[in-house]
Nucleic acid binder design. Structure first.
Lengths: 242, 242
DNA sequence: CTGGACAGTGACGGAAACTGTCACCATGCC
DNA sequence: GGCATGGTGACAGTTTCCGTCACTGTCCAG
């Protein structure tokens, strides 16, 4: 992970957490103790009130911050949490995951109304399948974040999306699509779409997509039927959203 | 200037300023236009709503941060979400649950400082076991909410707890305990405690507890050793909190 | 409908920053 | 004293980063 990302993650970890050991942070971020200390120095240099205490029970902490900073949740974070809650519910057949769902509901309720509405609209078009039985080759488990945010913008704005795609055989092609939904089948994410050039439903594995861009000139209305048409029959697919 | 600092500066510049030209940002930060574009890509990849408009009068801007500001989460909600994130991470061996974990970290970051501290202190005394192999008879999967909040108050305030208990054989008794921790073994939750009358560690299934009340006159210091003493040996128990 | 202003992308080689390791000091608690 | 923890300095190998350049796409004005 690039240093910049790590330092920003570190800041988020420190926010709202009390004293944490440098070693724990190092493990959590997958980097050496020394590096964490350097990162902390960077934050201090920016004027953030990071203090440390030596001795057993010590640790570093972020003192009270001036001002209120809003936390921005990305689409994949919401989807993953939601999914996690459901997984854990399924895992132990009883109403175990209910508390997790309640927590999420509160989370959604705390968002500004528009953002919550958007997220709900998105989640209604997210379909969750059973984890892939075979290991999906090369799937990383997280779709490229900027592709997700493009998808978000395209879906919510009702605009087309264009991107470069490399299929399973390694052939590169340029695609123009209407994005109608997402399929999450751990560890891979798929785009459920209508191919504008071929005029038929298509599924694209998100980690094979690159250079996505909005097609301002293409307008469409998201259609659940396209999502359904992209799903193979006979499998227990479930919609994520309510 | 190191990239990390520049990116954080850039974010601060974008906050509280409307549309700015990439060229202007480049001058301001003493770096090339291309580099600014890369930095913007980094911010987008973190899920920040950075948008750009082409044409004269265009520029990039940070959309109003539509984020979480404050949520009140109950202990079981946090525990469940945390657990869910971990489960889903374990379920599909690779970084799948990372997004969930990040989301959760942000969520915790949005909590008021004291509440977050308390929740962390509590989570450090929550132990997660493997799901019960046999169906636990009558366990509902969620402990009585008012018992949880009493537990919270008692643990954080270092006070004793009294309640009525019905054991597996159906015998009713009145108990006075020091609450030292929780054991979560889906679908059941257990109280890990020291029994004040018997003077030894005891485990109580939470759905068999009723009429809990604080014992203002009993003060104690939460002790990890009592938690450990309540766990059967040879099982893979894991602490929830870090 | 043309030119210009501006966002955004891809590629590449030299330069700079970053990282892990190791040794060591300081501090607080038992 | 012994131990756990935060904090610093130095160094070499490696990774990342950066400016440059060429190009595409979009929007607006004239």
């Amino acid at each position: 992970m690039p240093r910049t990302d790590r330092v920003m993650d570190l800041l988020e970890l420190l926010r709202g957490r009390g004293a944490v050991g440098v070693g724990a942070l190092a493990d959590e971020l997958g980097v050496s103790r020394r590096t964490i200390l350097r990162d902390l120095a960077t934050l201090r240099a920016r004027g953030l009130p990071v203090t440390g205490e030596a001795g057993p029970g010590g640790g570093v902490r972020l003192e009270a911050e001036r001002g209120v900073t809003a936390v921005h949740l990305a689409l994949d974070e919401v989807v993953s949490l939601w999914l996690a809650a459901r997984l854990s519910r399924a895992a132990s057949d009883l109403p175990w995951g209910d508390a997790a769902r309640r927590g999420l509901a509160k989370l959604l309720a705390s968002l500004p109304r528009e953002r919550a509405r958007d997220l709900r609209a998105l989640c209604r078009r997210v379909v969750v399948g059973p984890p892939a039985s075979e290991r999906v080759r090369g799937a990383t488990g997280r779709p490229p974040p900027e592709l997700l945010s493009r998808f978000e913008a395209a879906f919510l704005g009702g605009r087309g999306l264009a991107f470069a795609y490399v299929d399973a055989a390694g052939r590169r092609s340029e695609r123009r699509i209407e994005p109608h939904g997402l399929l999450v089948q751990p560890p891979a994410w798929y785009l459920l779409a209508r191919d504008l050039d071929r005029g038929e439903p298509r599924t694209f594995r998100m980690d094979r997509v690159s250079a996505p861009r909005l097609l301002a000139e293409v307008a469409f209305r998201p259609d659940p039927a396209v999502v359904a048409a992209n799903l193979p029959a006979g499998v227990d697919w479930q919609p994520l959203g309510t």
